[in-house]
Amino acid sequence: MAVTDLQKQSSFLRNTREKLIQIALLLAATVSILTTIGIVFSLLSETIAFFSEVSIIEFLTETEWTPLFSIKKYGIWPLLSATLLTSAIALLVAVPLGLVAAIFLSEFASDNVRRTIKPLLEILAGIPTVVYGYFALTTVTPFLKNFIPTLSIFNSLSAGIVMGVMLIPYVASLSEDSLSAVPNSLREAAYGLGSTRFEVATRVVAPAAISGIVASIVLAFSRAVGETMIVAIAAGQNPRFTFDPTVPVMTMTSYIVQVSLGDTPYGSLSYYTLYAVGFTLFLFTFILNIFSYWMVRKFREVYD
């Protein structure tokens, strides 16, 4: 009898403890979801406030952005074009170099080389972006001026290139992971048919890893769209609708920095522009992430 009581008691204590732990874990998981919902909600409500004063048609069709001037115009295109231009330049640098690095690391490098180079690449990802920004402004731009004399001090070219360098480790590391995940049996099959190392890498391994490679590119793109310090420092503060990489421009993120730092009165229309731009930015990266999720699911091969 006494033994049975003891058993009951200990199992009661254990069950209660298990329950408490479960609740604590659930709470921790909910915090991040609630934060995201909170951010979206505050972005959305302020954005709606903005669009009650500025028409969404003006926002999407006007090609000038002058909310802080006396003649106010609210066209997102100058900011959007700058963001797209710097991101495109960054991807032109990061994707080829990142993919070559990934294929080298996964298919050609010996274990020793891989063990040395991978951490080095990851150090690149650890450099603060503000350092990259000044590197672009004070080193890359003067260097590029040797070849392009008309290059402005602030321009999207050097900001884009440096941003691309920053993104190389993202592309390389994620792509390398998905290349290494391709089963060795496929490599053997390809070698057995008389493929060279290069053919194995490019015709069998890379296509088999395509979902991960595309995901790494989309992630790099979404990182480039959201990148702030490099473009704020090196690309300029001049909102203009252009795809000329040699002139100063202003990205969405640079604009947010400018307004946040300035003395824009709370509740004014120029204050709300912050949220409209922020929401556009959010929408952009959100769509990119959904796209990458869809790509991964569509192209992933399941090997048993």
Binding site: S185, L186, E188, A189, G192, G194, T196, P207
Partner: peptide, 20 residues
């Protein structure tokens, strides 16, 4: 070895078709 493998083919333990 690439030329050797072009004339001496191989079939493996586990079926390993390419994901093509």
């Amino acid at each position: 070895p690439v030329n050797v493998r072009r004339r001496i083919g191989m079939v493996f333990q586990k079926p390993n078709p390419f994901p093509k």
